[in-house]
């Protein structure tokens, strides 16, 4: 490939060097074993692992997946082996690869988040990604990430236990994403990632029942790209911290779009299910775009949208 003479793909992401801005999104890449059969994970800038909880979680009953126009709904329900088994069983595997490990953590109470962040801080991971789309059991199950005061409470509490850079992953199911972003950064978030899935629902018209066991589920895939680009753009206008942009990316040009909106790095999720080599192709297409446009440093794209 005729790379530009000197092309910088590396991104400094709150103190951690990502070798390139292409990462994979939590919940779509497991702990790396499966897609590791198709390509070497060392090709990636980082891997966000399946969302972890204090104890093993069974997840929701089937069906957990429904197709939608240009996307999918899921209600996996955070099935995971629990943080302890992640640390002992999965980190050694992931560490074989030359890529940043992003530990995605969830909780149902402020204390759970604090405990998770404390524990994962002492483990061999590079970044912590706090998923605040989870229901707050003390608040009638309303998601932490939907109210600025709850975001402030949970992030400022968890931040005290963080010995690694703390990325707060925002829920798109809010009226004003900029307000939520400001609350997270005000409470100490070192970076933000967005978007998590959009709440959706499908109904089987023959049985008149919801398709998913849980009734509702999270929408992702190409359908959400414009929503994600818009939200990343709004968040970039509101805060200065690094942004990991995701939602609907499946091509190099989608990734460039997300960077131009204001992301510093991007993540690929559901597109993996169509094409297991998607992240590798997105990276190649990104390089091609940079070469074609005589851009030497990928970082210069970030926030480069011209209005």
């Amino acid at each position: 490939m005729k790379d530009a003479v000197r092309m910088n793909l590396a991104v400094e992401f709150c103190g951690v060097t990502l070798k390139n801005p292409i990462t994979v999104a939590s919940g779509t890449f497991g702990f790396g074993h499966e897609y590791g059969q198709f390509f070497n994970p060392s090709a990636l800038g980082g891997i966000s692992v399946k969302g972890l909880t204090p104890y093993e979680r069974l997840g929701n009953p089937p069906p957990r997946i429904a197709e939608t126009p240009a996307g999918m709904l899921n209600c996996v329900g955070l099935q995971n082996p629990g943080i302890d088994r992640f640390i002992t069983e999965q980190i050694p595997y992931l560490r074989q690869f030359d890529t940043a490990i992003i530990a995605n953590v969830s909780g149902n109470t402020v204390e759970e988040y604090c405990g998770m962040v404390e524990k994962i801080s002492d483990a061999d991971v590079d970044l912590i990604e706090m998923n605040i789309s989870c229901p707050n059991v003390r608040c009638g199950g309303m998601a932490f990430g939907t109210q600025p005061h709850m975001v402030d409470e949970v992030v400022s509490a968890a931040k005290k236990y963080a010995k690694k850079p703390l990325i707060v992953k925002l829920s798109p199911n809010v009226a004003d994403i900029a307000e939520i972003a400001r609350a997270a950064v005000g409470a100490g978030a070192d970076a933000l990632s967005l978007i998590n899935t959009l709440l959706g629902m499908r109904i089987d018209v023959e049985t008149r029942r919801p398709v998913l066991s849980n009734g509702m589920g999270g929408l992702s895939g190409p359908a959400v790209l414009p929503v994600a680009v818009r939200m990343v753009y709004q968040v970039r206008q509101a805060v200065q911290v690094p942004i990991l942009g995701m939602g609907g990316i499946s091509t190099g040009r989608d990734a460039v779009e997300m960077l131009l909106a204001g992301a510093n790095a991007v993540a690929i999720g559901a597109a993996l299910f169509r094409d297991p080599l998607c992240p590798v192709k997105v990276l190649a297409e990104l390089k091609h775009y940079l070469a074609e446009h005589h851009i030497e440093d990928v970082n210069t794209l970030s926030g480069g949208v011209v209005l």
Partner: peptide
């Protein structure tokens, strides 16, 4: 995914 990564086919 069809390969064990998404945990969708429970």
């Amino acid at each position: 995914c069809g390969i064990g990564a998404c945990l969708g086919c429970a």
